[in-house]
Amino acid sequence: MPPTLRQRRLGAELRKLREQAGLTSTEAAARVGIQQARMSMIEAGRYGVSADRVRAMAHTYACDDAGLTEALGDMTGRRSRGWWDEYRELLPVALVEVAELEHEATALRVAVLVTMPGLLQTAEHIRASYDQSVPALRPFEVEHRTAFRIRRQGALHGKAPVPYTAIVHEAALRMGIGGVDVVCAQLRHLIDMGEHEHVTIQVIPFGRADFPAAGQPITYAYGPVPQLDTALLDYDHGCEFLFAEAQLARYRAVLDRMQRCALDPAQSRDLIHKIAKSM
């Protein structure tokens, strides 16, 4: 099985610490006491590493951030299969990794302009959206993807739901995907989900043009420490996972500005209700 998102991220963070220490892969391997080939495999996420080894590597790299070291140690060990692994043979890898990212996040913040946030969509809305895919999906593919997205929504339910903030442009509320009945049910679902303590929904109304118009949906997944945050950009051709500090800072700023342009949750709920009544 190819390395998971979590395994690749652990390797990337260890490589980053090594580079910050000014060590080559060969030098670091010699200091840690392993072969250079194994070091390369670890940094590629293709070779398992223990928490003790990670702590030793962090010490070798003069990393004095105890929180980061412990968070990296927690990413090691034998990985139990997640429910999303059932879909690895059925769906594109990037879609499966989105579920893994959401499962591992300590909080999620998303922004969309013309689509509904995936974790807040009704089953009918999901199917209607996939029915518009180009190239067209076959019926069984639509069902696989619909079932997968519904299972992803489990992140917002259960005993320990992830805190979730959705910034939605008014245009997304008026797109009409699936017809009037589907749209009205979707809007009522947004209102209901917004009643949950851990879910915040804010709408950017028409008339606010002073927000960064990011064309693709943005998901910002918070990690156990800021260095392990991830920004996810969702394009038509696939997903892009961003880890670099400058990229993370940029998308935090984008989301902050979009949120400042949005109505507060109560005003947003009133606008969603108003749109639903007008349908």
Rank of each mutant, 00 (worst) to 15 (best):
187 L>N: 06
37 A>R: 07
181 D>M: 06
165 T>K: 02
182 V>N: 01
119 L>T: 02
259 Q>N: 14
247 Q>V: 07
73 G>C: 02
208 R>N: 07
87 Y>E: 00
51 A>M: 03
137 L>G: 03
167 I>H: 06
188 R>Y: 04
16 K>W: 11
227 Q>A: 14
136 A>I: 03
85 D>L: 08
130 Y>K: 03
44 A>L: 11
277 K>L: 14
245 E>R: 14
4 T>D: 04
89 E>R: 12
163 P>K: 10
42 I>P: 00
219 T>A: 10
58 A>Q: 02
163 P>D: 02
263 L>P: 03
182 V>T: 15
212 P>F: 07
96 V>Y: 08
277 K>T: 12
230 T>W: 00
211 F>Y: 15
60 T>L: 09
31 R>N: 02
90 L>H: 13
218 I>A: 01
118 G>K: 01
51 A>C: 03
231 A>H: 06
156 L>A: 07
22 G>M: 08
187 L>G: 08
124 E>V: 05
171 A>L: 04
223 G>N: 09
55 R>Y: 09
118 G>T: 09
277 K>I: 05
95 L>K: 11
37 A>Q: 12
118 G>M: 01
244 A>D: 15
231 A>W: 09
55 R>E: 09
2 P>N: 10
94 A>H: 14
219 T>M: 09
274 K>S: 15
238 G>A: 02
102 E>V: 13
38 R>A: 02
260 R>Y: 10
185 A>W: 03
158 G>E: 12
186 Q>E: 01
6 R>W: 13
31 R>V: 08
31 R>W: 06
254 V>Q: 10
153 Q>D: 03
65 D>F: 11
19 E>W: 04
92 P>V: 02
11 G>L: 10
7 Q>R: 13
43 E>T: 07
267 Q>G: 12
46 R>D: 00
12 A>S: 11
268 S>W: 08
168 V>E: 03
142 V>W: 12
223 G>P: 00
165 T>Y: 07
209 A>F: 13
209 A>C: 06
234 D>A: 00
207 G>D: 14
55 R>K: 12
148 F>W: 07
80 S>A: 14
196 H>F: 13
53 R>F: 02
207 G>V: 01
51 A>R: 14
107 A>H: 12
185 A>Y: 01
62 A>E: 15
87 Y>S: 01
269 R>G: 07
145 R>S: 05
130 Y>R: 05
20 Q>A: 10
143 E>F: 12
247 Q>T: 09
149 R>S: 02
245 E>S: 14
183 V>P: 04
169 H>W: 08
111 A>Y: 15
146 T>V: 06
130 Y>M: 12
141 E>T: 04
212 P>L: 06
